[in-house]
Design a protein around this nucleic acid. Structure first.
Length: 271
DNA sequence: AAAGTTAGCAACCGCCATTTC
DNA sequence: GGAAATGGCGGTTGCTAACTT
């Protein structure tokens, strides 16, 4: 025969945990450990909770060194990189992000990061359909790749300045400041950029929505950043209709098959 | 100011591989 | 060897706070 039933479903409490329950569980595990048996734990602790619920509460909230709050750019990059490689294996992705739980990452992906990525992929999609003029001569900007997650990196500033000097149809605003070629400091509030590749298909810049604060001298900002989209509704539709994940996969595949390198510094979609 | 809508997140559900007896 | 529980995981739900109309 097998083991005894894990818990009396009719008598266990469900819903949000109270501070008292948290304190009980934490105190017990701090003193005694989990004992390797979550199902037996609630009885020992004196909680009317299912063992699975205790396990989840401990792993996702109570255990030491849990990190809460905003995800960093580095964490974004790791999540995107791994998701593009292994898909929704949240526990594996979480293992690469100390202090983050699979549940946290899953929630973050579903509520924020996926939308961000879809938006970027969609912008790229448009850019491929309607390529901008390739500048000539090709400006001597940094060979490093520009990452949309990384709006404040020096490569962005280099690209910004050099391309501006060549009066190209590109712009990039970042929060903070960077140096222009004449040595002056440029400050910006936000970033927005129109995307295109260089002649060698080695550098790819992105469209993205954003607002320009004070950069008219430096970019060729074409009026309203939303003009880069044929329709905002189209973007909403892209995200909401059908299965957003399938849609994202489609876009990812499309980008891959374009034989282009996307976000190479993230190792996302690189050949 | 109130009602309606949306976004974020904690927690639950259910499936499946593993473990136990 | 097989039945049944456990542990672990990804998907989903439901509550609540924030935002919009």
């Amino acid at each position: 025969m097998g083991r005894a039933p894990c818990c009396d479903k009719a008598n266990v409490k469900k819903g949000p945990w109270s501070p008292e329950e948290d304190a009980k569980l934490k105190e017990y595990i701090d003193k005694n450990g989990t004992g390797g048996n979550w199902i037996a734990l609630p009885h020992k602790v004196g909680l009317r909770r299912c063992g699975k619920s205790c396990r989840l509460r401990w792993l996702n909230y109570l255990r030491p060194n849990i990190k809460h709050g905003e995800f960093s750019d580095d964490e974004d990059r790791i999540i995107c990189t791994l998701f593009s490689t292994i898909g929704s294996r949240w526990s594996i992705i979480a293992a690469q992000l100390p202090g983050r739980t699979d549940n946290d990452i899953k929630n973050y992906w579903n509520t924020k990061l996926k939308k961000k990525l879809i938006n970027m992929a969609n912008n790229h999609h448009r850019q491929l359909l309607h390529p901008l003029p390739i500048p000539s001569p090709n400006p001597p900007f940094s060979q490093q790749y520009y990452s949309p997650f990384h709006a404040q990196t020096p490569p962005l500033c280099d690209a910004y300045t050099n391309r501006n000097n060549n009066n190209n149809n590109v712009l990039a605003f970042d929060q903070g400041s960077c140096s222009s070629s004449d040595g002056s400091q440029i400050s910006h509030q936000s970033f927005a950029f129109q995307g295109y590749e260089d002649n060698h298909h080695q550098n790819l810049f992105f469209n993205d929505v954003g607002t320009s604060a004070s950069s008219s001298n430096y970019g060729c900002f074409n009026d309203n950043p939303q003009d880069y989209y044929s329709s905002i509704e189209e973007i909403k539709e892209l995200i909401t209709i059908n299965d957003a994940s399938d849609n994202l996969s489609f876009l990812m595949d499309e980008i891959k098959t374009e034989d282009k390198v996307w976000c190479n510094d993230l190792n996302v979609f690189s050949d």
